[in-house]
């Protein structure tokens, strides 16, 4: 028999749910950004890199300026700058999206790692000005219905979806394909910057080399799992957040030897989800294809 007190509301269930919610936040923000980009036909697998950029810039800017909102601004700017590089390569110069995205991840990993160590030596210890986690949860809670409505029922939303499904037709109808894709990509960068800021300014109070640890790729899977729908992305983010959060609660029960297997859980879950959902998913028709007139 399992003693009931383990499952008491106050000591176990509520903290577990809050932890799941906290782990879901960066995944949700990054997935929402990628969702908007992909609905416009832009496949950006550089989420990981843009999140790292946001995490580093957020920690550094908030420390340097001594202000959390300014740090947040820096994180968004860094995410957008990296997204701009990606947009320039793939939308303007028509490079292969997967190759460019891979390059973006390595580039951001190296740049943030180098700068982090260089500044760490100069300032000894960079501690972020932190924000409470509910700030990010609030942003997510507002964005999900807003994006759902915006994509479904507004004129820019319709144009964005047209660009992702059939860019030639959208072009004929007077929609500027490249401009729409640029904007969607920059929006993605901004949200990934926020997702990174959550990691370095709220979840912890400092940046660490490669601190995203594959969350950008999990967010990519969440977009597929959520069938390119913001509500679906919310569901997926909560599921993965719960998988990640459960590690903290099971760690003491499972012992250190088996702990690495527990750490592998969210990644294994991603595989299962993709095996179950990827084939039947309504991906935008022009996803990942460069558009040339």
């Amino acid at each position: 028999m399992i003693p009931m007190e383990i499952f008491s509301w106050r000591d176990m269930a509520l903290p577990m749910m809050l932890t799941a919610l906290a782990f879901a936040m960066p995944l949700l923000l990054a997935a929402l950004g990628e969702l908007v980009g992909e609905r416009a036909g832009v496949l950006n697998i550089g989420l990981e890199g843009m999140m790292l950029g946001g995490a580093w810039a957020g920690a550094t800017a908030s420390f340097a300026a001594g202000s959390a909102p300014l740090g947040l601004l820096g994180a968004v700017a860094a995410g957008m700058a990296l997204a701009g590089v990606f947009a320039l390569l793939t939308i303007t110069l028509k490079a292969d999206a997967v190759v460019a995205g891979t390059g973006l991840n390595l580039f951001a990993l190296g740049l943030t790692g180098t700068l982090h160590r260089a500044l760490g030596e100069r300032w000894s210890e960079v501690r972020s000005a932190t924000l409470p986690e509910w700030v990010f949860a609030l942003i997510g809670a507002v964005l999900v219905p807003l994006l759902w409505w915006g994509l479904k029922s507004t004129r820019p939303g319709l144009q964005l979806r047209a660009v992702g499904e059939y860019p030639a037709a959208a072009d004929t109808a007077g929609v500027r394909v490249s401009r729409v894709r640029w904007r969607a990509t920059l929006f993605n960068g901004a949200l990934c910057g926020l997702a990174g800021a959550f990691l370095s300014m709220s979840h912890t109070d400092s940046f660490g080399e490669n601190m995203t640890a594959g969350r950008g790729f999990i967010a990519l899977a969440i977009v597929i799992f959520g069938r390119w729908n913001p509500w679906g992305a919310l569901g997926g983010a909560l599921l993965f957040g719960a998988a990640e959060g459960s590690q903290f609660f099971l760690q003491s029960k499972i012992g250190t030897t088996f702990y690495p297997l527990l750490l592998a859980l969210p990644y294994a879950l991603t595989l299962l989800v993709l095996a179950g959902f990827a084939g039947r998913s309504p991906a935008p028709a022009a996803l990942g294809q460069a558009y040339e007139r």
Binding site: L89, L93, A100, G103, F107, R117
Partner: peptide, 28 residues
């Protein structure tokens, strides 16, 4: 004292450069 991760920056930029090279296009 230069972190070895700095090499990733160069690799990333090299991939960017190769990605925009002519005729490297997805054929789908």
């Amino acid at each position: 004292g230069v972190p070895s991760v700095a090499v990733s920056v160069v690799i990333g930029i090299l991939i960017f450069a190769l990605a925009v090279a002519p005729r490297l296009r997805r054929t789908n």
